[in-house]
Amino acid sequence: MADRKCIMLVEDTASHRKLYASWLKIGGYDPHVLGDERVAQRMAEELRPAAIIVDIRLPNISGLDVIEGLKADERTRAIPVMALTVLDSATDKDACLAAGADVFVTKPDHIATFLDRIAALLV
């Protein structure tokens, strides 16, 4: 569907990929799901998504490093980023925002608030 906005999701847990991709579809978005964060930068450059959701606890590269890389590159710097994590301390939130995340969301979230946060990223 041409009018659906592409949202890139970087998430290593299969059940979470399925859940958040289904929520994005329900919200009218076109999810592009990555199970391997090592290709996130290249895919962001190729896809030019409307927003990127990055899990913070990833197996190969920290989600913080993924976000920092996206925000350091002029080709992807302007793409809004949501940090999505089970980590919920103020320190974790500060670290995500310092890395360049535009919004910090703690798992599990609810579909309505999740979609509201995505919509807010896109304005």
Rank of each mutant, 00 (worst) to 15 (best):
A14L: 13
L24E: 06
A101H: 01
T13C: 08
S89F: 06
V123H: 12
M82W: 02
K71T: 04
V66M: 03
D73V: 02
G69T: 10
H32P: 05
C96W: 01
D30K: 13
I26T: 14
K71P: 03
A44Y: 09
A44K: 03
M8D: 00
V105F: 07
R117T: 14
H16W: 10
S89K: 02
V66Y: 08
R48L: 09
E68Y: 07
L115V: 05
I61W: 05
A78R: 11
E11R: 02
V86M: 15
G100P: 10
M43N: 11
K18G: 08
P31G: 02
G28P: 07
A51C: 03
G63E: 00
Y29K: 09
A112E: 12
M82Y: 04
K18H: 12
F114A: 04
D12K: 08
D73S: 07
V86A: 15
M1F: 10
M43V: 12
E11P: 05
V39L: 13
S62I: 03
P80K: 03
A40Y: 13
E37L: 11
V33N: 08
I56H: 01
K5H: 11
R38N: 13
L97F: 09
T91M: 13
L9H: 06
A101V: 07
A120P: 03
K18N: 11
A21R: 06
Y20S: 08
A83I: 01
K25F: 02
L122A: 02
A78F: 10
D88T: 04
A78T: 14
K18E: 15
V39D: 14
R17P: 03
A90E: 15
V54N: 09
G28Y: 10
I79Q: 05
D36I: 13
I7E: 03
K5D: 09
D36F: 08
E46R: 14
A112S: 10
A99S: 12
G35Y: 12
L34K: 06
M82E: 02
N60L: 13
G63Y: 05
D92E: 02
A83S: 05
R4N: 12
D109F: 02
T85R: 01
A50Y: 05
I118T: 07
I53H: 06
S22Q: 13
M82P: 07
M43L: 10
K18L: 14
L87I: 03
I7P: 04
E68F: 03
C96F: 02
P80F: 00
I61L: 13
V105D: 09
L47N: 09
